[in-house]
Computed example of a mutant assay.
Amino acid sequence: MLTERIKAIPLGYSRVLFQNKRYGVTRSNFNNGKSIKVYAEELGGNDFISFNFYITDKVEQLKPCEMPEAKVIIFINNFQLQD
């Protein structure tokens, strides 16, 4: 489920809605899509979400950047893409 939601974020820059706030999100892929970096910043606010996601043959691993994993998971499961 996390993989599908992360891959739903468009490559490059996009905007999402999360907890009734707008965020600018940048997604970058590395290693033929096996490593994904996401950085989301609240537009007009102070909040941010930052994580890396790794996909191997055996496991998928979420690595939050200096924040609780629960915060990142809540963001992944609840953001809404904006036009």
Rank of each mutant, 00 (worst) to 15 (best):
I74T: 10
N78F: 06
I76S: 09
D83A: 14
Q82N: 05
G33Y: 02
N29C: 08
F30N: 12
F79C: 04
I6T: 08
F18L: 03
T3S: 02
T3G: 01
I55D: 13
F30C: 07
N52S: 11
Q19V: 00
I6R: 05
V38R: 10
Y13W: 09
A8F: 06
L17P: 01
P10H: 12
K7W: 06
N20Q: 15
K7R: 15
V38W: 06
R22C: 02
Y23Q: 03
G24I: 10
K7T: 03
L62N: 04
Y54A: 01
S14F: 02
P68H: 13
S35H: 12
T26Q: 13
I55S: 08
I55R: 14
G33C: 05
S28V: 13
K71R: 15
I49M: 13
E4P: 05
R15Y: 08
I76R: 10
Y13M: 05
S50Y: 05
F48M: 00
V59H: 10
K71E: 09
K71Q: 11
T3R: 08
L43N: 04
L62I: 03
G12F: 11
I73N: 01
E42I: 07
Q61H: 10
E42P: 11
G33V: 05
G12W: 15
K34D: 14
L17V: 07
G44H: 04
I6K: 09
N29W: 09
I49V: 15
L2M: 13
G44P: 06
